[in-house]
């Protein structure tokens, strides 16, 4: 079984290797071609080292995210510093902060706007489970209810090193994925079409989904 390597942290010291190993086992079931797998490794090397994140922050964790980008922690060392403001160009969305009922459709829409392959990292208690505001009437208890989450970084807010650690976890996950084959795409086209986002503030003639209904 291939073990994704990360510089300076041995494989064994990472948390949650079990989930990763079960993922590898699942992905490797159908794969036989050696050439394809070598190509996959190369592509995954590229992908995992070039995770450009969307600048998305709603609250406290966003400030820590900025701190990760600043001089002391400098995520540029990993090649993550190209934060894109347009979801089209981003590879991952770091959900840093509370997602409320009003924000939920916006987050979903941002996620849908991103180009494949795309990843989601839930940063901090709020994004993982609603955290401190679990009992509130206006807070979504965990972003995994509306978008698939790849890595959870607990903390309130997690310290910058913890965020970097989370990003390395994501790198590990990217490194075991297959580019060739249909496992790649997180959502089928069909699913995307059925997604519940309906744009309401454009003329009806332009709104295909509404017309379908």
């Amino acid at each position: 079984m291939k073990k994704p390597a990360i510089k300076s942290i041995p494989y064994e010291e990472f948390k949650d290797n079990e989930t990763l190993e079960s993922l590898i086992a699942e992905l490797n079931k159908e794969r036989t071609n050696v050439l394809v797998s070598k190509l996959d490794d190369l592509i995954n090397w590229g992908r995992s080292n070039s995770l450009w994140s969307l600048t998305f922050a709603t609250s406290c964790c966003g400030i820590e995210f900025m701190a990760v980008g600043a001089a002391r922690y400098d995520f540029a060392r990993f090649g993550f510093e190209v934060t894109r403001n347009s979801p089209r160009q981003a590879d991952l969305i770091m959900v840093a902060g509370t997602i409320t009922h009003k924000m939920a459709p916006v987050l979903k829409r941002l996620y849908d706007q991103m180009a494949e392959p795309k990843y989601v990292v839930a940063v901090g208690g709020c994004a993982i489970s609603g955290g401190p505001f679990k009992g509130s009437y206006h807070v979504l208890n965990g972003v995994d209810k509306i978008i698939p989450v790849d890595v959870y970084i607990p903390g309130c807010p997690p310290r910058p090193e913890a965020m970097l650690y989370g990003m390395m976890q994501l790198q590990r996950k990217v490194k075991v994925e297959n580019f060739f084959g249909d496992k790649n795409r997180k959502h089928s086209r069909k699913e995307m079409q059925d997604s519940p986002i309906i744009v309401t503030n454009v003329p009806d003639s332009l709104n295909e989904k509404k017309n379908q209904q």
Binding site: D16, I128, Y152, P154, R159
Partner: peptide, 12 residues
């Protein structure tokens, strides 16, 4: 010990 990021919610 802050290195706690995981892939699976239930691991938390």
């Amino acid at each position: 010990k802050y290195e706690n990021a995981v892939f699976d919610r239930s691991k938390l």
